[in-house]
Design a binder for these strands. Structure first.
Lengths: 237, 237
DNA sequence: CCAAAAGTGTTATGTCTACACCCATGT
DNA sequence: ACATGGGTGTAGACATAACACTTTTGG
């Protein structure tokens, strides 16, 4: 029996194992996706998700943060495994199983630090270019998952700067769900979680009156990572 | 650029890609897990999830149904990708990335047809033996996911025979959530979905009065695979 | 002073929860 | 006739959804 099993290991064909990151950002108005240009075979200059290979001594999580760091020089990013894609012909060069991770970053944190070695660009979710391989499916699944997560967990904050206003947050949720929300209901629901701390400072320049900044109550946020809100808008029948 | 990329493919280390199935069943009283005995190195006679290797020409989904079929001779089983486990040392023999799928089957469908080549056995979720590798983590994640799914989607039916009674269904949900539910609220909520069709036939033998059988309205069930119930019990604060 | 966005309360509606009694039948 | 599980209704609490006016201030 023991030998049988060890022989089994030897006779199996191995696959390349890749990672691809669906990187969402928010610029205050629109939900964005970060893509890189990748030339490969006759798909030269196709836009693609940021990806890489898993290294012998690293876990999948480690690999995906490393790859994200290589592109953005950001660490401590919200990163979650999404789904694994392994259709035999998904990569025409060679069979590759790809584990997709989805990441949320604040566009402002990123913008300056962008590594020059990648041709990377933010795209509006409404105007995505054609994507490499099955990356379109990955993005589709990621947006679904983002909607679910945002409705159940206070995950939306990950996409905003440390200090943010309620109207900014509302715009973010409107962008994620592709719908309009009532600002009175929105702010009441949100504040009722007691996860937001109101600051004395107001946002200047955007509106005349100015909106108060809030920050997150990190402590409660960590503890209370369940039982959040039902943010599904009124017209979700 | 093109050559660079192709070279990259060649220089990457490949991994074994395995599949493991978390197979849930329900016997009318308890939620069960189907495990197989697997002797390997000094872990001989350890219980393990049913697993296998992905073959060169098959997708991950195909591989997991094939493996499930090999064990149960059942096809058309509810099967969903759960998570991919890839810690470098998770399999001491050789680095293996394992894609975990979770499956729901009706214990009655299975029992007779069980393939003799595997030493397989149903275990109560309360009395699981120690499991191989990181299979315990897989099971933990699977039960969490089952709870989520069962609360959001009419997925519980997959674990029951074609004809079932409301009390059976309630027992199933109680087993999944590890809690007691109010039968009046339960049946009202459930029937309000209009996904159940009441049959003329009554269950005999279990109770004196007998409970009516229901079956699922397949058509609606397929269409309405969203916006199901909030089944979280009253004490879920 | 006016335009533009911020901020705030109330009411009606629907949903959820808790709870208790009668029904059908096999023994 | 009685024990066992099946089946049903209601009232109070709570959450949601719809809705409009006042405030602030830069230009």
């Amino acid at each position: 029996m023991r030998l049988d099993i060890l022989q089994q290991y030897e006779t199996q064909t191995k696959c390349l194992v890749a990672l691809d990151s669906i990187i969402f950002g928010f610029d205050g108005e629109e939900l964005k996706l970060l893509l890189v240009k990748r030339g490969i075979e006759n798909e030269q200059n196709t836009w693609s998700l940021m990806g890489g290979w898993v290294q012998p001594e690293e876990s999948l999580e480690e690999a995906s943060s490393r790859i994200l760091y290589e592109l953005t020089t950001l660490s401590d990013i919200y990163l979650e495994q999404l789904y694994t894609f392994g259709a035999p012909q998904r990569d025409p060069v060679e069979r590759t199983v790809s584990v997709a991770y989805f990441a949320l970053i604040n566009v402002d944190d990123y913008d300056n630090k962008i590594s020059k070695s990648y041709e990377a660009q933010w795209f509006s979710m409404q105007e995505l270019p054609p994507l490499l391989f099955d990356h379109g499916m990955m993005v589709e699944r990621a947006i679904q998952h983002l909607r679910y997560k945002a409705s159940q967990h206070p995950i939306g904050f990950e996409l905003l700067p440390e200090k943010f206003t309620i109207p900014q947050l509302q715009k973010l949720y409107e962008a994620i769900f592709g719908t309009e929300l009532d600002k009175r209901n929105f702010s009441r629901k949100l504040l009722s979680t007691n996860l937001l701390i109101k600051l004395d400072e107001k946002q200047r320049g955007y509106s005349k009156k100015g909106a108060y900044f809030y920050k997150i109550d990190e402590e409660k946020y960590q503890k209370q990572f369940n039982n959040f809100l039902n943010f599904l808008p009124g017209n979700a029948s």
